[in-house]
Amino acid sequence: MYIQCTKALLEKLKIEKSELLPTKSCEDGAAGFYSWHAHFITINRRKVVVCMNNLTRYTIVLYRPKAKDMMELESRIKEGIRTAFGEEGISEVVINEYIEKCGAVEYSKTAGRSMVANLNKICETVQWYADLLDEDTVIQKRISLSLGKYLVKFDGDYDHPEERLFRELCKMRNLSDSEWDRILEVENYQLKIRLDFENFDIWRRVLIPSSCTFQRLHCVIQETFGWFDYHLHEFRLIGEPEEADHKLPLYAYPIKMRIVDGEDPEVGEYLEPDKYEVKFDTKTSLKDVFKDTDTCIYTYDFGDNWEHVITLEKVIENNNRFPVLLERNGERPPEDVGGESGFEEYMRIISDKNHPEHEAMLQWSEITKEKERTIEEINRRMNYFFR
């Protein structure tokens, strides 16, 4: 494995020129698939090491590495590769084979202006994704997943690093470059998402990779229920009430954790981190939370207060990389109908053709109710969106 370092990184590593392998000797036999270019930058005055695969442009990011991390950089980069590949759903057997083929690490200088230009572009993109950086860990798997889906220019054409990575791993295993399913082993969650109504049975059943963030789950709920995403939202874990009164509405239960919109700059104004744990949906994966529970609550529109109970029904290992709607039941209430009581009033009016507000209510609901779509149409849209 060749790690081809920029001058800035070599200075941090304190590697002498005499210790470097000549650039012309950096031939890994796979057109650069086992070689990585690496650069040292700062983001918000924090140290960052960015590693880019020579062939696929797939990126590994080490954030705030300590002195020990820099001394053992080759181990940390391989650990980063293992972590990011695992999050992509690549099977452990394939990851182990890749690491083995990489072999021992040898350091070298960068391989020309073109490769450095590509590396610099990747570093710029990392800075755009700085809000995804996790202060609590060195290996930034969330950025790797996001950059893997970022469209990159390759010799006049455009492609996704993640998909190039999958194709090259297929070649490594002597498979056709379209046989991705044979290298993937994705942990998927089957979730039932039910509107918390006493008199209506409205729910969606979805399959979603456990590595997805709660921000992505928010998008899945919006899409599968046909909400318009006009209003604020949050996820939360709740505890048992002091008095065992099961008639309490969900919002009255004590809060153990709030998972809030990581893209809302004003979200911190109403949080009380001394009373409960706070996480951001852009940085929190489903498996970070569902490893300790099988239920959480999603609230959409703090005015109408639509409470969705999310239940983990089962864990499935397959090659599914994108959220899928499996089943559904019931049409969700129109936006801004006025909560559950408003929805009951709406249902009473539209079911009575003689009601004086019947026609007006029908016209209003055409704009605000869930649009008619098949499961296939919803899945095509989600597949396009999440790709």
Rank of each mutant, 00 (worst) to 15 (best):
W128G: 10
D181R: 06
W36G: 11
I99N: 04
R387W: 11
Q222Y: 05
T213A: 06
E277H: 07
E185A: 12
Y98G: 05
E313C: 07
S211D: 13
R348Q: 15
E376G: 00
W36P: 12
G330A: 08
E313A: 02
T293P: 12
M382G: 13
V186P: 12
K353N: 14
C296R: 15
G330P: 07
E87T: 06
E234C: 07
Q4Y: 11
L362R: 10
G80T: 09
E243R: 15
R182C: 04
G338W: 02
V50T: 13
Q222F: 03
I367M: 14
F166M: 00
R381D: 08
G339Y: 02
N199I: 09
E243F: 15
R236A: 05
T137S: 07
G239T: 07
D155T: 06
H160A: 10
V138S: 00
L248E: 09
I367K: 13
W180A: 01
A30S: 00
C102V: 06
S285A: 15
K256V: 04
T42W: 11
R348D: 15
I208M: 05
H355G: 10
S341W: 13
E366P: 07
K7P: 11
I3S: 08
E377H: 02
E11V: 01
Q190Y: 07
V152C: 02
Y251A: 14
F85A: 04
V337C: 00
F386M: 03
E163P: 11
K78N: 02
I255L: 11
V260W: 00
E100L: 12
L13T: 02
F200Q: 10
V116T: 09
G29N: 00
L325W: 07
Y189Q: 05
D177Q: 08
K314F: 00
G262A: 04
C26W: 02
E124L: 14
M70N: 10
K353A: 14
Y34R: 08
V138L: 02
H231T: 01
Y298S: 11
K7D: 10
D274I: 03
E317S: 13
L362H: 08
H160M: 11
Q363R: 09
Y98V: 00
S285C: 14
E163K: 03
L326R: 12
D177C: 07
L132D: 01
A111S: 09
L133S: 00
E97I: 06
G112N: 03
D28E: 13
V278E: 07
P356C: 13
H308K: 08
E79G: 12
M257C: 12
G239V: 08
E344K: 15
M115P: 06
G112C: 03
D292F: 09
Y253Q: 07
N318W: 10
T311Y: 11
D301Q: 04
E74I: 06
F290E: 02
A8K: 10
D294P: 12
D177N: 08
E317K: 15
I183V: 01
Y253H: 10
T295Y: 14
F85I: 02
E87D: 08
S176M: 08
E307W: 12
Y298W: 11
R167P: 05
T224Q: 05
K353T: 15
R76Y: 08
H233L: 03
Q127W: 12
F225W: 05
I208W: 02
K192S: 06
L217P: 02
G262W: 04
Y251P: 13
L62Y: 05
S108D: 12
